[in-house]
Amino acid sequence: MQKWFGGQDPALIGLDISSSSVKLLELVRKGGRLEVAAFAIEPLPPSAVVDQQVVEPDAVAEAIRKAVAKSGTKQRAAAVAVSGPTVITKVVQLSAFLSEDDMEQQIRAEADQYIPFPIEEVSLDFQVLGLAGGRTEEVDVLLAACRRDQVEARTDALERAGLRPRVVDLQNHALESAASLLRHQMPAEGVGKTVALVDVGATTTTLLFIHDRKLVYARESAFGGKQLTEDIMRAYGMSAEEAHRAQRANTLPESYRDEVLTPFIDDIGQQIDRGLQFFFSAGTDIAQVDQIILAGGCAQIDGLAPRISERMGIATVIAKPFANLSISPRAKPNLIVRDDTALLLAAGLALRSFDDDADH
């Protein structure tokens, strides 16, 4: 059984390899406080990562090299994440009296019951969550599996860039960990509350429903900021590069907000509304969501949070994961504030350096 979750490393950089860019973040502890030590974002060619899978490892490796150089980090151990339809997770119950080796043997022997892929084609790992339903004789065990080629494509890209792949995590698990950096924004710091964390990436929107600081439901949909770029390209006859440049420089025509941006914001609202419906029908016995937190590259869109709050009737804020962290001058504080919402997954991966501290 390959321990592809990895383990704790004294120092890790978090690397979010998305369809549009490589995002790097390094966190360190200074005294009793976390500090952002380094960060960088490096764009990827459109064909490098497709449908959450690394297609061109050389292009990804080159972007990683540039991000490492740009960030100035000296660390070479890294954590990455996998997600998508080839990632399978399931909570199973096993005897609480089994040793870790015995659990591994039992899971491997019974893996074909839980995983729809041949066992020789997957990377497999597990984590004991705690007693099952308060019983003392059984424990809940999180079983996670991913097609090995997806894991190896990411680790291969890291190695080509001169890094050591120390941890391969689940995207949702890393985002749940990153939510600990958002507790200052949550009502009652999340205790006894239900928060919907909405991460709108380039091609995928991830909704995590966190109740009492624990992930209880997750959903992904094929929707993201790439749609907005394509809408701009169609509306104004621009190339993708021109559309990106105009967005960043805020030089789009006056008609942009009414003709392009507002319909896109409404589409985000539709994705969230659909996610809420799935959540409430999932049998969690949770009757309401107390707050929505918007993350991802699209979260900074002007007017998005109030529009979502009005449509959903739920208090909505923009993620500020580094508000309570110090920021090293090397990490360019003025730039990281601009990109902080897009760095949530990288932050969750970087937090793997501090797995011994549940509250980070």
Rank of each mutant, 00 (worst) to 15 (best):
L349H: 11
V289R: 05
V55Y: 06
L143G: 07
Y217K: 08
G283H: 04
R164K: 15
C298T: 14
Q288D: 14
I41D: 05
S21I: 02
L325E: 04
L344E: 00
A37K: 00
G225V: 05
V68H: 08
E310K: 13
G130W: 04
A235T: 07
A59C: 00
A79V: 07
P43V: 06
V80T: 14
R213K: 12
S281L: 07
D339Q: 14
L142W: 03
L252P: 09
Q270K: 12
S21A: 15
A40L: 05
V195D: 13
P43K: 07
Q288W: 04
T73G: 12
I119T: 09
Q150N: 11
A96Q: 03
D102G: 01
P165A: 14
G130H: 01
I265E: 07
D199C: 07
H244V: 15
I268L: 09
G275Q: 02
Q291R: 02
A235Q: 15
A196V: 05
A48Y: 00
G130F: 03
E189G: 07
D267Y: 08
R219F: 04
A132M: 08
E220M: 10
G237E: 10
T205V: 12
P306L: 01
P187T: 01
C298A: 15
L129R: 10
R219Y: 03
G31R: 09
R154P: 00
V200I: 15
A202Q: 06
L343W: 00
T73C: 11
S328A: 15
D302A: 11
R338G: 15
P306T: 02
Q277N: 11
A331C: 09
V128F: 03
S83R: 14
Q291E: 10
G224E: 01
L158G: 05
G130Q: 04
E121G: 04
Q75K: 13
D140Q: 00
G225L: 06
I41N: 11
D16H: 07
I265Y: 04
T229R: 01
G32I: 00
D266E: 14
V168C: 04
E56K: 10
P321A: 02
K193L: 04
P46K: 09
F322K: 08
A48H: 03
A161Q: 15
Y114L: 06
M103S: 05
L276M: 15
V54T: 05
A218H: 15
D290C: 04
A346Y: 06
S99Y: 06
T203E: 10
Y217N: 10
S328D: 15
R307S: 10
I327M: 11
H184K: 08
A61G: 12
A63V: 11
V151P: 01
D16W: 05
Y114W: 13
S221W: 01
D156V: 02
T229Q: 08
R148N: 12
I41G: 03
P306W: 03
L131D: 00
A347Y: 04
D340K: 09
I107T: 10
T194Q: 08
F264P: 13
C146Q: 04
